[in-house]
Design a protein around this nucleic acid. Structure first.
Lengths: 401, 401
DNA sequence: ATATTTATTTTAGCGACTAAATTAAATGTC
DNA sequence: GACATTTAATTTAGTCGCTAAAATAAATAT
């Protein structure tokens, strides 16, 4: 209801400049002006402030002179050392810690194998504190300050309250992890869903930049989803992300890790595929309830190479996926659906059945113009997104000094 | 990407003042200041402009003097005659035309019985033009200008493009109705989904004002839905509203009016209930594919009074509704779901089965704190919402003169 | 050496806001 | 009934942030 009390355009424009620099790398003042719809006089004024604060630096353009007349551009760029953020990615049996600089680039990354399901809440918090403190010490030798920490987890989180509601990687629920970490580090701690992190990265990529309403589906051990509306993650009432994996495919159907029956996840997640396959095919030994990357690789290979039982299982998964996407298109009507995650390796074996299921479920008028595509998977993407979100969230504080 | 090029706060604040006056009725300048977070000096300046344009008027407070000291407030109010909008509600076999004044109040309303399904696109457009022109002549005797026209229809519309994609009231599809009407009236024409209109009204009601993420489900001949995110209707990529009624309950299930099988609408809409009931119960004669209000009243009475077959049918509808709501909660996670529409009369007979279905489908953690409630139905509500949306959309033009 | 081109900075001025001072219009008090 | 008090609305003075235009800077072209 209440609009802002006075002109906030200086702050808005300053943040816009910082974000342009982060997205595009070094840019000249004129270009920052046209990019953000402000005069270059204003950019001069803003960049003078930022230079004085040590948040940006000037540098000559890369190319010596590509044959153009006129005064050469002076590029300005974010000073990487001005701040850093730490992103902690928590997934099943693995912890990844990454340091990002003020420009959003990864400057350090480490992986730890952890029995996440065996941890109590206290043990997890202690572990996170210790690992983070060590990384923080390292990071502060190269950066002026720690701007924020992002905990990116698979599962359902309430970002507003910083509470982890449920994660397949953990055996406890409803943990106020952000507050517990904030108590030990003198900076904001964000708790984010991993799919939202990835979606935030994809949305900035030029290939998808013209699709402001974007849905990202992550296939893997669980099924993640993120919905971006006008480029911003859609969070429900309590700040928890939309949970595509637990929308229903078959009332009373297959058992899901969440305890209910018929969830889409119970048909297309790694554990669901492996569970079905291990009943009918000879597969590498291992914990079939938590199949490893190599176990899944083996199974996927069979399906892609035409093993009939495996093909059938992946086709059924494709049907469930298509059915769920049908509901998703009906309800959200996005421009683009991107399917990614480690499970995207099996997507070719699901594709045809998926498309058939969508065609069965929807009249063409309702499908609208939504494009469905897959997208290769990179294990650092989550942390890149977490870094981007954390910087975005803390830019104003960094600016304030 | 591009932020505004310079300070737009005067326009923003002026619009905020106008909207406050429309929402709250006459308000004093001081109160407009605190309400919108601006100084009263600014309100003085803004209201002087508006007075000069004849968009507002001053008046002494209602109560002569309730025993307070100090200079009495001078209330300012929107001048009803400053402009008007026309809202045309198109539903199955009925056309309603309503005139709203600049303050958002209904000043004229008329209903016409029309065989909507028998109309060609040309016939409909001619009809709309004629009826609207007549109402417009009347309205312009009392208002300085026609600010806009809103066509509120049941069905799927693309608001951005002003195209009607599909409506149960019409036998043709993909009609650019907004453009066709705009060609004959010298004002903007909005095409809106009826559920979005209603949701916009409900969202401003004090009882629901603290639920910015609101889902409204309309039960009736068809099933409508509107999702408000931060108080604004969520439109998908092409501007068409989310279609709850055509999300799926049973793959390959009952036949829906859209031509596909298993849609929720095929279980809980008026025609679905009546179709099932007429097979097993003796019911008033009539077109069972398009049951009238009185036919539905009769059927609903049976269910509410305990007739076993009717009860069973409504309970099954409740199950389908609950199942659909489960997916909705999983995906949108709203603060509040309001169930309304003419079909809400049968809600008590659906409620228990609905609740059971939700409990079966969702783990409590995922349900979050969403409240589900029903809400009495008023046939003028759609037009009130259409008027409000049209005024909101045209306020800036009215201001420009 | 000078003209041209393009980038950046400086200057001058404008629009919009706020805080504080002033004016307006009541009620209370003695 | 005169004067103090209270609250509302307006006026005044001053600040902030932006832009357009002018000035300056730094290159290439002739």
């Amino acid at each position: 209801m209440a609009s802002r009390s006075h002109d906030t355009s200086r702050l808005d424009n300053t943040l816009a400049v910082i974000r342009s620099l982060r997205d595009k790398g070094p840019v000249a003042r004129v270009d920052l002006g046209t990019l953000n719809g402000i005069s270059s006089a204003t950019v001069t004024s803003i960049s003078a402030d930022l230079l004085q604060q040590g948040l940006i630096s000037e540098r000559p353009p890369d190319m010596p002179r590509p044959n153009e007349r006129g005064r050469p551009k002076t590029l300005i760029q974010l000073a990487p050392e001005a701040a850093c953020v730490i992103c902690i990615k928590l997934s099943i049996n693995e912890l990844q810690l990454v340091v990002g600089d003020y420009a959003g680039q990864i400057t350090h990354s480490e992986h730890h194998s952890i029995d996440t399901l065996g941890l109590s809440q206290e043990a997890l918090v202690t572990l996170l504190k210790d690992k983070t403190a060590a990384v923080c010490d390292l990071a502060l030798t190269r950066h002026r300050r720690l701007a924020g920490i992002c905990l990116a987890v698979q599962g359902v989180v309430s970002s507003h309250s910083g509470t982890l509601i449920w994660s397949p990687a953990l055996s406890f629920r409803n943990a106020p992890l952000a507050a517990l970490l904030e108590a030990h580090f003198d900076c904001p701690v964000l708790l984010e869903n991993d799919a939202n992190c990835i979606a935030s990265v994809l949305a900035t990529q030029p290939a998808y930049a013209d699709h402001p309403n974007l849905v990202v589906i992550m296939l893997g051990y669980g099924i993640g989803m993120s919905v971006l509306i006008d480029g911003k993650p859609f969070l429900g009432a309590n700040g928890s992300a939309a949970e595509f994996g637990h929308s229903k495919y078959q009332p009373g159907g297959a058992l899901c890790a969440c305890g209910k029956r018929g969830c889409i996840e119970a048909y297309i997640s790694d554990y669901a595929l492996y569970r079905q396959a291990s009943e009918v095919i000879e597969l590498p030994a291992g914990d079939s309830a938590h199949p490893s990357e190599s176990q899944m690789q083996a199974l996927t290979q069979l399906a892609l190479q035409g093993q009939p039982e495996a093909q059938r299982i992946f086709a059924e998964a494709g049907r469930a996926l298509g059915y769920g996407l049908g509901n998703l298109l009906t309800l959200f009507n996005p421009d683009l659906v991107l399917i990614t995650g480690s499970g995207v390796r099996g997507y070719p074996a699901m594709h045809d059945a998926m498309q058939t299921a969508i065609d069965e479920a929807l009249v063409p008028e309702l499908v609208g113009s939504t494009r469905i595509a897959s997208c290769p998977w990179d294990r650092d993407m989550t942390c890149l997104g977490g870094i981007a979100m954390t910087l975005q969230a803390t830019d104003q504080q960094i600016l304030a000094g």
